[in-house]
Design a protein around this nucleic acid. Structure first.
Lengths: 131, 131
DNA sequence: CAGAATCCATAAGGATACTG
DNA sequence: CAGTATCCTTATGGATTCTG
């Protein structure tokens, strides 16, 4: 048995550190404003070409999209398929590994939906008390 | 029945837009480098005072911690408790609303853990082929 | 102790133009 | 079409100092 000190109600510091580094890794590879959005679009709409993607992910610039796709490819979420011809056609598609994100995406999606409706009802209440 | 066009395999654009805005909201309030880390520490270690928190969330500066705590409070995740005295003591604790994040935290935690071990084994394989 | 204030460095990101 | 290059603005965040 290890020496048992304080903090019974809470997890050990080791567990906390483990969670922190797991979250750290997750944020590192799928964090930021765009990566999950790109993945969602590719999931819902299927493989897409560069300009289509840029249209579908509203607000993203070509420069940023290009950078994000490169990182997503490096991290194994996206595959870049090149079809020769004139002009060359490039398609981006999700890899099987990107499926490992489905739990994360689902959780974020339902939390975001819940949160938004909470905010909306708070604003309603505020408007009510303003009258 | 609405007019049925293309894209049978994939969700409608409306669904996609809904998911995008849900994710957008989520990223907006819990995104960034620090918010989830602070929440995790408060979950695992219980309520904490400012300087304790700064120690536990490694790498964060006082300025950034202060800003993040303010936003977390505004968004209803954290409560700031002030105990008068000399010196004044301030404690930060999670609200009940922060519990709504548990699914998100769990998903991110297990994905991050899985991803890290995947990376580790890839590095092992690479080291192997280098010999 | 719990921060706010200030200053500064770096990163992220938008706009526009350009190219094979 | 699929980006890249360049320039510029804004956001993020670290270090340090200061204060009630």
């Amino acid at each position: 048995m290890e020496t048992q000190v304080a903090e019974k109600r809470h997890a050990s510091s080791k567990e906390c550190a483990a969670r922190l580094s797991a979250i750290h890794d997750a944020i590192y590879v799928i964090g930021g404003k765009w990566k999950l959005k790109i993945i969602i679009v590719l999931r819902e709409e299927g493989s897409k070409r560069f300009n289509e993607l840029q249209r579908l992910v509203s607000g993203i610039s070509a420069r940023v999209l290009s950078n994000e796709l490169r990182e997503l490819e490096l991290n194994g979420f996206v595959r870049r398929k090149v079809f020769d011809g004139r002009p060359v056609i490039v398609e981006y598609e999700l890899t099987e590994y990107s499926d490992t994100l489905s739990e994360v995406l689902h959780a974020l999606n339902s939390w975001g939906t819940m949160h938004r409706s909470k905010i909306r009802s708070e604003m309603q209440a505020a408007a009510q008390s303003d009258k």
